[in-house]
Design a protein around this nucleic acid. Sequence first.
DNA 1: CTGAAAGCGCTTACAG
DNA 2: CTGAAAGCGCTTACAG
Lengths: 342, 342
Amino acid sequence: MGKPTVHDIAEEAGVSLATVDRVLNERPGVRSMTARRVHNAIDKLGYVRDVHAANLARGRQYRFAFVLPEGESQFLKALRDAIEEAGAGLRLDRAELETIEVPLNDSVGMIRALETLQAQQIDGLAIMANETPVVRDMLAHMKESGIAVVTLVSDQPNAERDHFVGIDNVAAGRTAGVLMGRFVGGRSGKIIVVVNTTHARDMVQRRLGFDAVMREQFPALDALPSLEGHDQLERTIQVIDRSLASHDDVVGIYCAGAGTRGVTKVIADHGLADKLVVIGHELTTHSEQGLRDGLLDVVITQNVGHLVRSATRVLRAKCDGREIIESQERIRIEIVLRENLP
Amino acid sequence: MGKPTVHDIAEEAGVSLATVDRVLNERPGVRSMTARRVHNAIDKLGYVRDVHAANLARGRQYRFAFVLPEGESQFLKALRDAIEEAGAGLRLDRAELETIEVPLNDSVGMIRALETLQAQQIDGLAIMANETPVVRDMLAHMKESGIAVVTLVSDQPNAERDHFVGIDNVAAGRTAGVLMGRFVGGRSGKIIVVVNTTHARDMVQRRLGFDAVMREQFPALDALPSLEGHDQLERTIQVIDRSLASHDDVVGIYCAGAGTRGVTKVIADHGLADKLVVIGHELTTHSEQGLRDGLLDVVITQNVGHLVRSATRVLRAKCDGREIIESQERIRIEIVLRENLP
DNA sequence: CTGAAAGCGCTTACAG
DNA sequence: CTGAAAGCGCTTACAG
């Protein structure tokens, strides 16, 4: 006999298909004695349900929304593209992905966006946003109304999300730190640290990890206070230029968030490629070119395709009440040099 | 209207379901005029077939075999585990994975194994083996009999495989080279290079890439001729010990293949962890521990889970006559430090 | 609380 | 060369 089906269960338990189905999907209206018989049959035959057939039968269509910050950063662009690409591939898998962009720190916009999604009765939400009470409360609401929720890229540990899809940013900062220390190669001096804003949770964590490694392993290096670029090219360039001017012993630059374009511009303009070790985050067409041109030495990154696929896998599992395979959903901290560019 | 189905196509083309199906699956017995009408309908309605429904209907069961070299290396073990794990997950996806182990360089065993698989009419084969005329010819035979074939980990560029699933080993060697040069930090000296055998294609390529980088970027470093460990712990330790004894300016060890256990043993026994830069390949429980203990500085790796899933995805696509998404099937060269261990 | 029947989107003998 | 009908494994109204 092949794999057992609902028919086999029904026969074994001496009930009808409908009853088997009710038990399988935990729908009410089954006497506990009957349910017990069905469960026994399931255990005895080792039944596992064919999800595809189930979805086919119920005409199930999963609707997942991705809420992202508005912005022209290359990473966000790549993420949006990945969502679109995954969406195209998933249409046949009965999942429909939608992307909504909300301006950074626009609470009203965020509330409106999430309320709309809730009204639309989406099945799952993947959200990348700064941690605020508004977001926290809204997520609790969404969860209550039965929507699966995962946080993306930047976690909200205090919100009732089902799962976080992204890297451990403290570890990412540590990784950057070790590579910085090693690549600097025994010299002593200062490290310029650039972030877009010191308020974002992931930035804070990366800085934390970076500093810890500097302290523990490379006391000869001195990581300067974070410079804020605020996602603006000119501003980023300006703050770095100023910092370079006031320190004559800078040996490296760590760009912990968006702002890589500003950094590479400075490096190129001042011909510093061979003098400084430069480490950035997120592999994009731009940072990839930076690696090729030698303007960047290392890029620490997380694969946007994996992020999106993991998010949809997790959301789908939550919708189906299935367990996720933790090991498969762990997003890797990837290290990219010119030599191992994909 | 939702997505068009075979019913819509049948109606639009004015034919029966059976005819639509014949056209869809390119089965014979349809007048070209009729086929043309069906194709027009497909184009007009933008039909794309529901693979899951199709598989359900035909009770399709994909049978894929993985042929691997026999051996107790941690990497092979991890790979076997990954196959088993993927197999369990895929049972519901109507794919069945089987692993066959053939002793290295046992041509007769290889022929027998492949002939058996061919007789069993498997749907697809993923093979990891050294490049030999025997293998090349057998793969041609298998392909001819309609079996999809991918090479795994170590390519056979001259065989008629459908696809290679694995990393670019020249690039992997280059990556190791750059990290070695950078981590050594300006010192000059010799690098010990360990391989299991100089005959395997992937070893040759890694060595090639490593040497190229040494030559181009780190002229102060001198990579010694490859030591062969032949997958034997004692032997590996012996050759490294001997090499260390005869060179007093060794600054690093590059283990390009199996043999990491021997290398870490030597490092630990002689207390060389802080003196030498040690780079190995393939993340396993052992090399992971080596990283944690500081006995290894870097591990270059390819994710075995990705390898197996990519192989099955590609085989399935080939069986269905579908195109693969190249970008999704590219296996990354991963760099692992203690800090970004998964 | 339980079951018989129809249907999801596709394929497969079988008949003509 | 073409079509009507049954079936893959599951779910869903509808009846009882």
